[in-house]
Deep mutational scan, measured.
Amino acid sequence: MTEYKLVVVGAGGVGKSALTIQLIQNHFVDEYDPTIEDSYRKQVVIDGETCLLDILDTAGQEEYSAMRDQYMRTGEGFLCVFAINNTKSFEDIHHYREQIKRVKDSEDVPMVLVGNKCDLPSRTVDTKQAQDLARSYGIPFIETSAKTRQGVDDAFYTLVREIRKHKEKMSKDGKKKKKKSKTKCVIM
């Protein structure tokens, strides 16, 4: 069974824990209790493949930012979460993405942009803004509501699919490099 290491990042209060708990335990946590770091595991079937999701729910508070490099190193894919009623959390996505790329030393890291709290009427981040940002990053965008469960499975499952595509691409690139290195030079 394939294991996928997913990391949920975003500013404090955007609903990272609520999304994760909704996926794992099928219930909505409405009281806000700032996370330092929590880890969850769940076995699911995605596109006919049974897999184990190892999900790291991270601290959004700035005082825990020193811990970010460590979990970013171990993560295979990242859910970059903002709240649709919090423009600052949307603007912060850029910083999370840049930090992930720096730590992973790669421009090509599996990510999904997630606009959470889409059940709320007080939207300050337009869907088109988020779609445009995701398009500019070359990553999928999904709106979710941890409260109603809308888009929750889709967000995590899409990230797994992005990781699969990335692994497939990397193995193809690896095979191309191996083929090239088999060419021999004969000096007579």
Rank of each mutant, 00 (worst) to 15 (best):
F28W: 11
Y137D: 07
Y64I: 02
G138H: 04
M72Q: 05
T20A: 02
G174D: 10
F141I: 10
T35V: 15
F90C: 11
Y32D: 00
V109G: 02
D105G: 15
P34W: 15
D33Q: 01
Y4K: 15
V45Q: 14
V14L: 14
V45W: 04
S39G: 04
K172P: 13
D69M: 05
K117Y: 13
I46V: 10
L120H: 13
L113W: 13
K177H: 08
V152Y: 10
S39D: 05
V14S: 12
D126E: 07
K172E: 05
S106L: 10
V44P: 04
S181Q: 14
T35M: 15
P121L: 10
V44Y: 08
K175H: 10
G48H: 06
G15Y: 01
D38L: 00
R97S: 07
P34A: 13
A59P: 01
E49K: 09
K182Q: 10
M72E: 07
L120R: 13
L52M: 04
E37L: 02
V29W: 04
C80K: 00
Q22R: 12
R97N: 06
V44E: 04
E3L: 02
F82P: 03
V103S: 11
L56M: 13
T2S: 07
F82T: 11
T127A: 06
F90Q: 12
Q25M: 15
T58M: 06
R68A: 05
D30P: 08
K88W: 12
L56H: 06
S106D: 11
E31G: 10
L53T: 06
T127Q: 08
H27W: 15
D54L: 00
V14I: 05
E63Y: 02
D47N: 04
Y32E: 00
S17E: 01
K5G: 02
G60I: 15
R164F: 14
H95L: 10
K101V: 12
L56Y: 07
I100S: 04
Q99E: 14
L52G: 03
C118F: 08
R97F: 15
V8M: 06
T35A: 15
T35Y: 15
I84L: 13
V8W: 00
L56W: 09
G151S: 14
D69K: 04
T20F: 00
L79M: 08
D105V: 03
A11Y: 08
S39F: 03
Y96N: 00
S106T: 10
S39L: 01
K180R: 09
E76A: 15
S122W: 07
H166D: 13
I100R: 01
E62V: 03
K117R: 14
C80N: 02
I55R: 00
I24K: 05
F82H: 08
G115D: 03
F141M: 05
L56Q: 15
Y71F: 04
M188W: 08
G13T: 04
K101N: 08
G138M: 04
C51S: 07
S17D: 00
K175S: 05
I46G: 09
K176L: 12
K184V: 02
M111T: 03
T183V: 08
C185N: 10
E107M: 14
K165G: 09
I142K: 02
K165P: 04
E37S: 03
S122M: 10
Q129T: 11
S17V: 02
T50M: 09
K5A: 02
I36Y: 00
Y4S: 10
S122Y: 08
C185G: 09
K5D: 01
V8Y: 01
V81D: 04
Q129W: 10
I21K: 01
A83F: 03
M111Y: 02
I36S: 00
A83N: 15
T158M: 06
P121W: 10
Q129A: 12
G151L: 14
T183M: 07
V160H: 03
Y4M: 15
V125R: 08
L23R: 15
I36H: 00
I84E: 15
I21Y: 15
R164H: 09
V14P: 00
H27M: 15
D119L: 14
Q129G: 13
K172D: 10
V186L: 06
I46Q: 15
K128R: 06
T35E: 15
Y137N: 07
Y32Q: 01
L53V: 11
Q43M: 12
Q150H: 02
Q43G: 07
K117Q: 13
V44Q: 05
N86Y: 01
R164V: 11
D132M: 05
